[in-house]
């Protein structure tokens, strides 16, 4: 009888330790996901800044073109992930318009100012890709914990849910291949 009590206490202790460590693991992963999401925010802001400068330069060259209408991108604090993806897609569209316009204006393509910005946007794109990949990698690890047995029991009890991935568009991937 005494042994049985010890066994029960031992099992309860093991479960308790496992529960605490899994809970800590989940909390750490949540922090990591949040950190990597803020990395995306920084990269998006940088992209927006460079893109805005590019648009200004392009507008200076092609004043009379109809295509100079660019989508308005609004980045603000406390945006949801889907809102961020939408704003990023708007930036993709603007970038594509710039690429089309540049092809028709060789002077613009050859201008020093534009070339510097084009290099900058490629680097910013690379940073955004890195942030996105890091975020998605952390989300994968987090979602595995949330969805797979037995850690999903702790996740459910802590009301944690699987997180959304930051999807890259095909257009975004193309920018890295831009020839200068």
């Amino acid at each position: 009888m005494e042994y049985l009590v010890y066994i029960i206490i031992g099992v309860v202790l093991i479960i308790l330790i496992w529960w605490i460590s899994t809970s800590n693991k989940l909390k750490k992963m949540t922090i990591k996901v949040d950190e990597s999401l803020s990395g995306i925010d920084i990269a998006l802001t940088k992209r927006h800044e460079v893109l805005t400068k590019m648009i200004e330069v392009v507008k200076g060259y092609v004043k009379h073109e109809k295509e100079t209408f660019f989508e308005v991108v609004k980045l603000r604090k406390e945006m949801t992930l889907s809102e961020k993806i939408t704003e990023n897609q708007k930036m993709d569209n603007n970038m594509q318009k710039i690429n089309v316009l540049v092809e028709n204006y060789p002077d613009l393509k050859a201008s020093d100012n534009f070339m510097v910005l084009q290099k900058a946007i490629i680097d910013v794109e690379e940073h955004l890709q890195a942030s996105r990949r890091l975020y998605n990698s952390n989300v994968t690890l987090f979602n595995d914990l949330v969805m797979l047995f037995p850690s999903n029991i702790v996740a459910k009890a802590s009301k944690m849910k699987a997180k959304e991935f930051f999807k890259a568009t095909e257009k975004q991937k193309e920018y890295v291949k831009v020839d200068v």
Binding site: S36, G39, E126, H127, Q129, A130, S131, R133, L134, S137
Partner: peptide, 10 residues
């Protein structure tokens, strides 16, 4: 820094 690992290792 994890970000730099992803930035360098495309």
């Amino acid at each position: 820094m994890e970000h730099d690992a992803f930035y360098l290792l495309t």
